[in-house]
Amino acid sequence: MIVYAIIGVIGICLLFAPMLFPDVRSQEVAARICIFIVLVASYDLLIGYTGIVSFAHTMFFGLGAYGTAIALRQMGPGWDAVLLGGALGLLASLILAALIGLLSLRVKAIFFAMVTLAAASVMAVMASQFSDFTGGEDGIIYKVPKLFSPATKLLTDDDGKVLRIFGAKANGKMAAYYFVFFGSLILYFIMLRIVASPLGTVLEAIRENEMRAEALGYRVVLYRTAIFCIAALIAACAGILRALWLKYTGPETSLSFAIMIDILLMVVIGGMGTMTGAIIGATLMSLAQFYLKDLMEIASQATAGIPLLPDLLAPDRWLLWLGILFILLVYFFPAGIVGTLSKRGGH
């Protein structure tokens, strides 16, 4: 019950984020949480449910984002560009995932992880080098469909002014957020369906004992390749949502190895092999990354008269405290927050 209560609170906050948190920064955090829930859950399909360790997840995320971004820059801010660019990103992700899976999933886990790391590194280098298409290190700035423009009025009063819904303007920014929210929600429910299907059961069997699953007649390599492709497609869809929300795509926002580390941390914090863990892990990590520095600044000012404490709580040391928080979470929740609470009867 505790887990469901936490998820319920997070879900309500995300659903009503434009009304509850009208400032630009808070909406950026809410949209990022929605996208990363999908990204983390899709990665959990690999590492948590199937036992596949991959470092190429950001590559597929980036392909979806770059495909959409390049099409929008070349063709203009139309839905045809979104559909074509997104489709090309999905196709490229599917082809690469199938090739990597069929050629590499036969080897041991550590070797497959190294193959995916190499593939992701090559993709990041290509994004930086092919600057005519990708914008290089500077990335791409582009316009999105008019529906998502802040100047677009979704609802107006008799005087033609934008209506406010509980204080939030009913404009293109709200439309963009709810496009991200409901897009993420649909992708998340698709993954829940996969986990609850016979395919999900086979994947868990492969994770627990690959040799036994093979002996039972399951073609392990094909199943592992299939889920690798599915996870890649979902990650690419998350990239499309990210590109439409940010109106900017670059190596740091879509292909950075730091994003891969964030995904791993979110999976561990939430709990591997639990779809609900992705919601809690992505939310906690995103909130910490955006607001921990602010909290430390307040704490530093509040303890100004105490020796050493203001220096220890200086905002510049937020990464140190983030690391400490992560260590404490792993210590007290060794199976992740959802996994540990479930074992203790909190589920």
Rank of each mutant, 00 (worst) to 15 (best):
M1H: 13
V3Y: 00
I7H: 06
G8P: 03
V9H: 06
V9N: 05
V9G: 07
I10G: 05
G11L: 13
C13L: 15
C13I: 12
A17E: 08
F21V: 07
P22I: 04
P22W: 05
S26P: 00
Q27P: 00
E28P: 02
E28M: 14
V29C: 11
V29W: 10
A30G: 09
A31L: 10
C34V: 11
I37H: 05
V38S: 05
V38P: 03
V40P: 00
V40M: 10
Y43C: 10
D44Q: 04
L46V: 07
G48Y: 00
T50W: 08
S54N: 09
F55S: 10
A56F: 01
H57M: 07
M59T: 12
L63F: 12
A65T: 07
G67W: 03
T68P: 00
A69L: 05
Q74C: 07
M75L: 15
M75H: 07
W79Y: 15
D80C: 06
L84T: 09
L88P: 01
S93L: 04
S93V: 01
S93M: 02
L94C: 09
A97V: 02
I100R: 01
G101V: 03
L103V: 11
F112K: 05
A119M: 13
S121C: 04
V122E: 06
V122A: 14
V125S: 15
V125N: 14
V125E: 15
A127Y: 08
S128L: 14
S128A: 14
Q129I: 11
S131Q: 13
D132A: 15
T134R: 06
T134F: 09
G136T: 05
E137K: 12
D138M: 11
P145N: 03
L147Y: 13
K153Q: 15
K153S: 15
T156P: 02
I165Y: 11
I165D: 09
F166T: 04
F166Q: 13
K169S: 14
K173Q: 13
Y178V: 05
F182M: 05
F182A: 09
G183R: 01
G183D: 06
F189Y: 14
M191Q: 10
R193D: 10
L203K: 01
A205K: 07
E214K: 11
E214A: 15
E214W: 02
L216Y: 12
G217Q: 01
R219E: 14
V221F: 05
L222Q: 12
L222P: 04
T225H: 01
I227V: 15
F228L: 09
C229N: 02
C229K: 03
A232Q: 04
A236N: 03
A238I: 00
L241V: 03
L244E: 08
Y248R: 14
T249L: 04
P251I: 13
S254E: 14
F257L: 11
A258F: 08
L265A: 13
V268E: 14
M275Y: 01
T276M: 13
L287I: 13
Y291L: 05
M296G: 05
E297R: 15
A299V: 08
S300A: 15
I306F: 08
L308H: 11
D311Y: 15
L312F: 12
L313H: 09
L319T: 12
L322P: 00
I324Q: 02
F326V: 04
I327C: 10
L328D: 03
V330W: 02
V330M: 14
Y331V: 09
P334G: 05
A335D: 14
A335E: 15
I337S: 04
V338W: 00
L341D: 02
S342R: 09
S342T: 12
G346Y: 10
G346H: 04
